[in-house]
Design a protein around this nucleic acid. Structure first.
Lengths: 210, 210
DNA sequence: CCTGCCATGTAACCTTTGTTACCGATTACC
DNA sequence: GGTAATCGGTAACAAAGGTTACATGGCAGG
């Protein structure tokens, strides 16, 4: 584990911190689709991603969902940090977007490392910053964009995250991610295909206009 | 200034920190409507609010606006913190919602106080947490609610912030805050009035259903 | 007191998005 | 191979929200 940590976080953390992380952290490998955390669940630990990507979702009382953003290798989930400060239950759902390897760090360490390690402090602040900016992006999308542009943006994000211009998904799944209906997504996808921006297949979509 | 600081932040900060703030901070009184910060502007300092309230807005390239949230006495703007970490320019606009008194702290102090004062560290983390939660609220509103519910929520927020169930504003202003058109707002306000939830006057609205 | 601006109300119409229904094609599974 | 479930295309319609246009009435400033 220490090697993988060094590889992904070596440029961020000083050696003693890396060592501490590898001592108290718990390595976890999860398959695509695995739910790492749900709304209302108590926060057990804080994830440091070594490989893969995680999709962060919000849900309302009626079960409507919305993707907030993705986190990738080198990232952590600021929402988790955040919950350690205030209430101890999660406000979001986290689902592995691809097969993912991560280290879970117990939440108790957070505060103490904040005092001890400057690099940890900076990492936490940087994470908060990154997540706030992603939230702003999300707000921009849903507040200012029409569904077709949101859809294209979502497809680009997914292509980016998986490092693959072919996205393996269904119209129904996309509809859930964007909190709309399958029919709307099919309609708009067909339009985007006619505009030459994507290419449609059964169970997959190629993004041309990246 | 030190008295006002003590009154609003005394329960948060230890005396030496309060003293440092009052030494390096700059007291500022601004009238309602005053623009404290704009998008793209470099961040000069970090505001600690002593009295009043500030409206935080987002704008896209086409000039469409959207209110993100309000900050009040005892709050600071995490977006400002955030910008100190990454880029030094603001992603948001800040406008005084009421007459407001605040202390501007130079951004250089942020990092050093983080190492020195535990209470500062906790305050910063708590602020980040609060702001993330407000952003989640905003996302919930625009993603899951219809315009009439968003409108009612906005009116309640404004009433809360000003501690007054009579809101002094115009339909046009509300439309700008919610990124929609005046006609839509007038239509929905009339509907809310017919439902007995509000009462309409020229240049003001009384919120009944708080 | 007159004039012009601003705030509001309302009608008519259009666009975008959501809903329901039904179809054929593909795939998984027995 | 047959059958049920899933996936995607499409039509028809409904609802929400955005746009344009115009009327009324208050109010400020001359």
């Amino acid at each position: 584990m220490i090697e993988a940590l060094k590889q992904n976080y070596g440029y961020l953390f000083e050696p003693p911190l890396l060592e501490e992380i590898s001592r108290v952290g718990q390595l976890k490998k999860v398959p695509e689709g695995f739910q790492l955390m749900d709304i209302g669940e108590p926060i057990k630990g804080m994830p440091l991603i070594l490989e893969g990507a995680i999709k962060i979702l919000r849900e309302d009382e009626k079960g409507n969902e919305l993707v907030l953003y993705f986190i990738e290798r080198g990232d952590t989930c600021a929402m988790t940090l955040s919950c350690c400060v205030g209430l101890a239950k999660s406000e979001i759902r986290a689902v592995a977007e691809t097969d993912t390897v991560l280290v879970m760090v117990p939440v108790e360490k957070m505060e103490s490392w904040m005092a001890t390690y400057k690099s940890w402090r900076q990492f936490i602040l940087q994470s908060y910053h990154d997540r706030l900016m992603e939230m702003l992006d999300t707000i921009d999308s849903i507040a200012f964009l029409k569904m077709d542009e949101r859809l294209l943006r979502h497809l680009r994000d997914k292509a980016m995250i998986t490092h693959d211009d072919v996205i393996h998904t269904t119209h129904q799944d996309i509809a859930r991610d964007l909190n709309t209906s399958r029919v709307v997504i099919s309609r708009l996808l067909k339009k985007l295909e006619n505009q030459g921006k994507i290419q449609l297949f059964r169970n997959s979509i190629r993004v041309i206009d990246l």
